[in-house]
Design a binder for these strands. Structure first.
Lengths: 143, 143
DNA sequence: GTAATTCCTACTAAACCGGTAAGTTATAGG
DNA sequence: CCTATAACTTACCGGTTTAGTAGGAATTAC
C-alpha cells in the first residue's frame, strides 16, 4: 500500500516545472540535477506525463519540457493516476477492466469504494500550485 | 497502491469469525472452505492476527480460532495495519522507523500526511460488525 | 555540421507477492 | 496410552513489479 517512486518523482518534476514556469522549455538535465534524481530514470516518468498531455516537449538544442496548463489546474490526483496506473485500493474497483466474480456477495466492496472515494476527493482538492507554494498543513484539504 | 490479498483475506476471516461467533473455536479448514481460500496460505495470515491478539487459538481436536473481542470492537484500520504492515502511502511517514533526509525541504510531505490521516480516519470508523452486517453504502462512513 | 536534447528499446538486480510443501507440537476423546 | 485433529514452524519457489542502467536513434537550434 505504497505510492512508488514513479508517482512521487512525477510530483517533484511537476513542482519543479511550476517553479520554473517561464514559458521556456526546461531540459530534463536541469530538473534531474535540482531534484537529485537519475536523469535516465526520470526520462521514463516524464514520458508518461508527456504522453498524457500534462507536458509539452521539444527536442534538440533549447528543448526540454514545460507545463501545458497553469500549475493550479493540475490536481495531484490526476498526476498520480497517470503514473501509478490507478489509485484504487483493490483491483475490483477498476471497472470495467476488472470484474470480480465475488462482487455480488462481497461484504467489503462498499467499504473499499468508500476508501477510494475519500482518497480521490482529498487528492482532487490539491493542486501542483498548492504544493509548489508549500503552504500546506496536513489538515488543510480535508474538504 | 494496492491492498494485498493478505489484508483482504484477513478481513474475510474476521468477518467469517464474526458470523460464527458462538464462543466455540472454529477450525481454519471451515473458514478456508467457506471463503474458498487456500488453507495453507490462510495459515500465515491468521498467524499474524493471532500474534497480534486479535484471535485466540486452540490446537488439537475441537480447536481452531475465535475472536477475542466483540465484532464491533475491531476497526478495519487495525486489521489492515497488522496485515499490511502500515497504511502509510509513503515510507517517510513511518516514524520513527524511517527518517527521510529531504523531510525538511519536501514540499509534498504535508500532502501525504493529510492523505494518510484521511485514510486512517475513514478506516477507523468502520468495524468488522459493520462489514458482517453488510449494510454499508460507499458514502456511509465519511465522517 | 555539430552540439544538445528528447525519444525508444532492451536489459538487470533486488524485492515482493501469492502461494506450496513437509514436518512438529499440542489437545481431546476413547 | 493411542489416535485423530488442528495449530504452528520453517523452508522453498515461480512470477511480477520496482527502480533503475545502457546504448543508440531522431530531432532541433545555431
Amino acid at each position: 500500500m505504497k505510492i512508488s517512486t514513479r508517482g512521487r518523482y512525477a510530483l517533484r518534476v511537476m513542482i519543479d516545472l511550476a517553479e520554473h514556469n517561464s514559458g521556456e522549455y526546461i531540459p530534463l538535465t536541469d530538473i534531474a540535477g535540482r531534484q537529485e534524481i537519475s536523469e535516465k530514470y526520470l526520462e521514463s516518468i516524464v514520458s508518461m506525463l508527456s504522453k498524457s498531455g500534462f507536458l509539452m516537449s521539444l527536442r534538440g538544442k533549447g528543448g526540454g519540457y514545460r507545463l501545458t496548463r497553469l500549475p493550479e489546474d493540475y490536481s495531484v490526483r490526476e498526476i498520480l493516476e497517470v503514473t501509478e496506473g490507478s489509485l484504487a485500493p483493490i483491483a475490483c474497483l477498476e471497472q470495467p477492466t476488472n470484474t470480480c466474480p465475488r462482487a455480488s456477495v462481497c461484504k467489503s466492496l462498499d467499504m473499499w469504494q468508500g476508501l477510494y472515494d475519500v482518497m480521490r476527493d482529498y487528492l482532487s482538492g490539491i493542486s501542483i500550485a498548492d504544493l509548489a507554494a508549500d503552504t500546506m498543513e496536513p489538515g488543510n484539504f480535508i474538504i
